[in-house]
Design a protein around this nucleic acid. Structure first.
Lengths: 260, 260
DNA sequence: CGAAAACTCCGTATGGCGTACCGTACGGCA
DNA sequence: TGCCGTACGGTACGCCATACGGAGTTTTCG
């Protein structure tokens, strides 16, 4: 009939895992591991060898237990990934706008996220796409983000969208920056290897006649820069856009207020 | 010694596949399929059942051939995904700024991409993260994008960053919008099912005392909206930011020039 | 105090995947 | 005509997540 409770795809069980609610068993042998040890082993493994190398076997081996023992602590791999994600989110700072203002706070938030993505390249593969479960850290992030832009004259929806915009921007840059390539790339060759080896062919295919602007920009060396060279510029533009919005909302609320 | 040429992870072979350069064999039996038929079968399959259901076996079955026959046309699954991606990119329009201006052109580009992501939810999983190979459509996109913001007084690098900013924004929204959940979600339950079933637990965990701003916004119903409700607002802010930049560059270059 | 119940650990097995290998049949070219 | 490169595809290998069930351990209850 209904799916067995306590198993996989059970919101109650998964949320209890994320929030570390739920008491352990009273009967039976002592547990040799903890959820935390499992999660941290998985995180270390993902940091070292990438998400694609993260298998239940590998995690179990690193912990010196049988593969199936992990399923005592975690309902399945999907849930493990969710907990890994929420755990590592805790490393990103949640700056308070009091004193420094909303713009500086959002900027710090963005930079902190970017460093998180550098430390743990695999998070960007879990962050953007797919369902995000509200674990304690993600919830704290959401609260802090909204608080940053509260009391600026924005509507509730606008507050949420503005924070999402900044977060999404950082995620987008991280996705092209971070060497996720290592995971995805066929053959195990590095990003630079592939790029270097394919350049001669590309230069033959991308003729200046058909792609004049692109070749001009290419030859100007723009694509030789680090792929996140535009991070600062983009962040500034995004924040400028937000500032525009805030100013317009403010001036609408308070009639006598010349701009600039 | 060196990896066998013509095999996998060979840039020459992969690029030839993307650009449809490279002549077929002269000897041997006639080929029963074409690269195009393979790619389109794979695209249909991904559209219908999601990326996770896309296996070489499934593609072969849909085409009525043995699994291994696919490897005659395509070096491996990774390369097939690259070709699928570049193929489907061709569906997105590349608006010309002449007449309508750069802002309207970028806006159309953004909207067109968003519809592409709706038609083929799986593209957002290939788009952002990982290495993007310069196939013909991606190249055309880059050219068109740069052309849109050429001659506005921006530097070459700024042109590239500005286009990337808009593209990245759309990708970010698409990633949270699109029902990628179907692929990733454990247990096969729908997004709404999961959300509905987990809400009571969430409301117990996310106490108003600890997360006052979040609960206020939550209770205002902001998160009941479609997840891409902020698309229009965010796009406007991003374009505003770009407009700021362009204006500042213009006024710096040409001293006596009233706008409009 | 003994037995049942609840629990951990994990060996084994199932069904998926990508793809290497190789035998067979084909067909253009010498 | 015969050669040899090629297409096709069966089989097999080594991964993966994980279902199932047995053996051993601890708590609880009769």
């Amino acid at each position: 009939m209904a799916r067995e409770r306590g198993g996989r795809a059970d919101p109650a069980r998964t949320l209890a895992l994320l929030w570390r609610t739920g008491e352990g068993p009273t009967r039976g042998p002592k547990q040799g591991l903890t959820v935390d040890r499992v999660v941290h082993a998985a995180i270390e493994l993902a940091d070292a060898d990438g998400l694609d190398a993260l298998s239940m076997r590998a995690v179990a081996e690193r912990l010196g237990v049988g593969t199936m023992s992990l399923y005592t602590y975690v309902p399945g791999k999907a849930e493990l990934l969710h907990v890994m994600f929420d755990t590592v989110l805790g490393e990103s700072a949640l700056p308070d706008p009091t004193g420094i203002g909303w713009r500086a706070a959002l900027e710090q938030r963005a930079r902190s996220d970017r460093e998180l993505a550098r430390r743990h390249p695999w998070v960007v593969r879990l962050w953007g796409p797919g369902l995000l479960l509200m674990g304690p850290r993600l919830t704290a992030r959401a609260e802090a983000g909204l608080r940053t832009v509260a009391d600026l004259g924005l509507s509730d929806a606008e507050m949420a969208h503005v924070v999402d915009l900044v977060d999404g921007y950082v995620r987008g840059v991280a996705q092209v920056t971070v060497d996720v390539g290592r995971d995805t790339l066929a053959g195990g060759a590095g990003y630079d290897d592939w790029w270097a080896e394919s350049t001669p062919y590309l230069e033959q295919l991308i003729r200046p006649t058909r792609f004049p602007t692109l070749t001009r920009v290419w030859e100007a060396g723009v694509y030789d820069q680090a792929p996140d060279a535009g991070f600062e510029l983009g962040l500034r533009l995004v924040l400028d856009g937000i500032e525009n919005l805030i100013r317009s909302r403010r001036s609408a609320a308070a009639p006598p207020a010349p701009q600039e």
